[in-house]
C-alpha cells in the first residue's frame, strides 16, 4: 500500500542511469574520445593523447558538471513552486522567474555604464551577476505571491507569470536601445543559453549556491507534504506557514537565479522534470519526489546536452532549443490528461 521499499530499485536504476549519462556526455562531442580514455582522465590517469585529457578536464567536465547542477536545481525549483502555488503547471520559466533573472542580468550588463567604476566592476563580476539575477527572480516570486493571495484561481497565476515575462522582455528591449553594441553582444550571447564555457571558479560558485538551495529545499520536505492539503490544513498540523513559504521562495529564487545567471534561461526543465518524477514514483511524498527529481533532472539535462553536440558534428545546438523541443509536447500532453490531477 504505502511502501517505500518499492522505490529503492527505481532509485538504484536512476543512480546508474545518472552515472551512464554523465560518462556518455563526457565521451561524446565534436572530437571522438574513447570511453576508456575518458575514465582515465577522470581518475587522474593519463589518456592516450594529452589533448584528449585537456579537452575532458577543461572543456567537457565543467560542461557536464554545469548540466548536472542546472538540471538538479531547476527541477527542484519547479517542484517547490508546483506545491507552493498548488499548480501543476508552475515552473521557473512559466512563472516568469527566468525572465526576472534575465531582467536582473540585463540591468547589470546593459546598465553597468551608468554606475561608477568600482560598482560596475563588482556587478560585472560573477558574484554581481548572481546577485542581480537572484534578486530579479526573488522580486518576481514575491510579486506572484502577492497576486496569488488576492486571486484564488490557480490558472490566473500562470497568466500573471506570462505578463511578467512580457513586461521584463519589454524592459530588456528598452535597455538594449540605450546600450552599446559591445554590451548588447554580451547580453545576446548570455540570453541564448549555454552550459559550456564556464571557468572552474564559476562552477564552484554555482555548486555552492546550488547545494545551499537544495539543502534549504530539503528542510521543507515535511511542510511541503502538509501543503498538499492546502495552507489552512498545513497550519492546523503545526506548520509555520510564513516561515516555510519564505524558505521555499528563497530556495527557488537562489536556484533559478544562480543557474540562469551562469547558463542563461533554460526552458521547460523545471516544469517537466517534477512531473516525470511524479509519474515514475506515483506518489506525492516529497521525500521521494525530491530525490527522484534531483536524479531525473540531472539525467535529463545531461542527455539534452549530449544531443546538442551530436558526434561527428561541428555544430553545437543551443540547449534551450533542445529542452523546448522535448518539453513543449510533454506539457501539452500533461494538459490533455488534466482530468487526472498530477
Amino acid at each position: 500500500m504505502y511502501s517505500q521499499k518499492r522505490n529503492i530499485p527505481i532509485f538504484i536504476i536512476l543512480g546508474i542511469a545518472l552515472v551512464m549519462a554523465f560518462l556518455l556526455n563526457l565521451s561524446l562531442g565534436s572530437v571522438k574520445i574513447p570511453f576508456i580514455d575518458v575514465v582515465h582522465s577522470l581518475t587522474g590517469g593519463e589518456a592516450s593523447k594529452s589533448t584528449w585529457e585537456y579537452i575532458i578536464l577543461h572543456y567537457r567536465l565543467p560542461k557536464a558538471l554545469t548540466a548536472l547542477l542546472a538540471g538538479m536545481g531547476l527541477s527542484v525549483s519547479g517542484l517547490l513552486m508546483q506545491t507552493l502555488f498548488r499548480n501543476p503547471l508552475a515552473g521557473p520559466d512559466v512563472l516568469g522567474l527566468s525572465s526576472g533573472a534575465s531582467l536582473g542580468v540585463a540591468f547589470v550588463i546593459l546598465g553597468a555604464g551608468f554606475l561608477p567604476g568600482i560598482l560596475s566592476g563588482f556587478f560585472l563580476s560573477p558574484y554581481g551577476i548572481v546577485l542581480a539575477s537572484t534578486a530579479g527572480s526573488f522580486m518576481v516570486l514575491l510579486a506572484i505571491l502577492v497576486v496569488s493571495q488576492r486571486l484564488r484561481d490557480t490558472m490566473a497565476i500562470l497568466i500573471i507569470g506570462l505578463m511578467f515575462s512580457s513586461f521584463t522582455g519589454a524592459i530588456v528591449g528598452v535597455l538594449t536601445f540605450f546600450s552599446t553594441s559591445e554590451q548588447l553582444q554580451k547580453f545576446t550571447f548570455w540570453s541564448l543559453g549555454s552550459l559550456g564555457n564556464l571557468p572552474w571558479e564559476h562552477i564552484i560558485i554555482l555548486a555552492v549556491v546550488c547545494i545551499a538551495g537544495l539543502l534549504l529545499s530539503a528542510i521543507c520536505i515535511k511542510p511541503l507534504d502538509a501543503l498538499l492539503l492546502g495552507e489552512r490544513y498545513a497550519k492546523s498540523m503545526g506548520i509555520n506557514f510564513k516561515k516555510t513559504r519564505f524558505i521555499i521562495i528563497l530556495a527557488a529564487s537562489l536556484l533559478t537565479g544562480t543557474i540562469t545567471a551562469f547558463t542563461g534561461p533554460i526552458a521547460f526543465v523545471g516544469l517537466v522534470v517534477p512531473h516525470i518524477a511524479k509519474l515514475v514514483f506515483k506518489t506525492s511524498s516529497h521525500l521521494i519526489l525530491y530525490v527522484g527529481t534531483i536524479l531525473s533532472g540531472a539525467i535529463i539535462l545531461l542527455v539534452c546536452d549530449t544531443f546538442t553536440q551530436m558526434p561527428g558534428s561541428e555544430y553545437v545546438l543551443p540547449i534551450n532549443a533542445i529542452t523546448s523541443i522535448i518539453g513543449a509536447p510533454i506539457v501539452i500532453w500533461l494538459l490533455m490528461r488534466k482530468h487526472k490531477p498530477v
Binding site: 500500500m1 504505502y2 498548488r86 501543476p88 490557480t154 515535511k222 507534504d225 502538509a226 501543503l227 498538499l228 492539503l229 492546502g230 490544513y233 498540523m237 503545526g238 506548520i239 511524479k278 506515483k282 506518489t283 506525492s284 511524498s285 490531477p341 498530477v342
Partner: peptide, 16 residues
C-alpha cells in the same frame, strides 16, 4: 489542491 495523494498518505499526514 490537486495532488497524487492516496487515501492512506492523506490520513498519514495527520501524524505530522
Amino acid at each position: 489542491p490537486p495532488s497524487n495523494l492516496t487515501v492512506f498518505e492523506l490520513v498519514a499526514l495527520g501524524r505530522q
